[in-house]
């Protein structure tokens, strides 16, 4: 019991503390791939420290939503962390509180709050960013649903810990077409949800072209720090779902001991590093899609997920 509590705290700490590093590594790799030197991989930590030390300015016209949104956005990925296998392959005591659909709802709640907060201050760019994120958001939704259907058909469950056991049980299950297509669909969804390049340009400074970043323009000081941190954590949580639940559930600790979990940390960080390298290559080698091309990109993701389900249900 005591060890379970400690391991749970370690999972939270892993996501909380390594998320800025993941963002820094991704930015650095992108710059290196483009032949530039790039910022230090610890740049996100410096940014956070700077922002936490600064004064926060909140518009008098804004309501409580604007002030609550950074905290909601910050807590949501941490709540999801409790539900998914981050370091261990056995369920911890929060694991059966909600399944993947529940985790999706928690992330959707944070999305709702940030979108409302962006509209709240009446900054024109905020409202634009909010409406665009919602557009991407509701196109992502059906793909998520398809992925859940296909996962539940395959693993007879949508609890992440049970799904994860399904893929490692036999090599035939791993190379099943439904499984590989699901991974592709999930990767496309992650690109869209975290504002990565075929959908949005995370390093762009031009407000008119922003999707994800435009929502945070009004935040300063602590609010901005929490928002940036939350964004990094969301990326780490989604990548963890992709890696530990869907794609490669290896390297997780299987013994209930703190030592085993500590041993699992570098292995999982290595997997994460490989995933980040793949993301960096995708971000460098594609151009950002025009806004009205995004439905096509997500339509393709939907088709992939639907084919995965067809393959699962109909093929022998």
């Amino acid at each position: 019991m005591f060890e379970h509590v400690v391991i749970n705290i370690m999972q939270l700490a892993y996501v909380l503390l390594l998320a800025p590093l993941a963002k820094g590594v991704l930015n650095r790799m992108k710059e290196r791939l483009q032949g530039k030197a790039g910022p230090s991989i610890f740049q996100s930590y410096y940014d956070l420290r700077k922002l936490f030390a600064k004064d926060e300015i909140v518009s008098e016209q804004s309501s409580w939503i604007f002030r609550a949104a950074p905290y909601v956005a910050f807590i949501a990925p941490l709540l999801v962390t409790l539900l998914i296998p981050v370091l261990t392959d056995y369920p911890l005591f929060m694991a059966f509180m909600a399944d993947m659909v529940g985790a999706g709802f928690i992330l959707a709640l944070s999305g709702l709050f940030t979108a409302l907060a962006a509209v709240d201050t009446a900054n024109p760019y905020g409202a634009m960013g909010a409406s665009r994120t919602r557009m991407v958001g509701f196109l992502v939704e059906p793909v998520f649903m398809m992925i859940f259907f296909a996962v539940s058909f395959t693993a007879n469950s949508t609890i992440p810990y049970i799904v994860q056991q399904q893929w490692v049980s036999t090599p035939a299950a791993f190379f099943e077409p439904a499984h590989l297509l699901l991974v592709v669909a999930m990767l496309m969804i992650i690109l869209a949800e975290t504002g990565k390049i075929p959908v949005d340009n995370p390093s762009g400074d031009f407000e008119l072209a922003m999707i994800d970043e435009a929502k945070n323009l009004e935040y300063s000081g602590r609010g901005a720090a929490l928002m940036h941190w939350a964004g990094a954590m969301k990326l780490v949580v989604l990548l963890t779902v992709l890696l530990n639940v869907l794609l490669a559930p290896w390297g997780l600790a299987s013994k209930v001991s703190i030592g085993a979990v500590l041993l699992a940390v570098p292995l999982i960080a290595l997997k994460m590093l490989i995933a980040l390298a793949v993301l960096a290559v995708i971000e460098v080698s594609f151009a950002k899609l025009r806004l009205f091309r995004i439905p096509e990109f997500l339509g393709a993701a939907f088709a992939v997920a639907a084919i995965a389900m067809i393959a699962r249900v109909f093929l022998p």
């Binding site: 035939a172 590989l180 297509l181 339509g299 084919i307 393959a311 093929l315 022998p316």
Partner: peptide, 20 residues
């Protein structure tokens, strides 16, 4: 058999990609 199923699904995927 499972390799053949994989090839079949990829074959189906190329048809979809041709549409898009």
């Amino acid at each position: 058999l499972s390799l053949n199923t994989l090839v079949a699904v990829l074959f189906l995927l190329t048809a979809f990609m041709m549409i898009s």
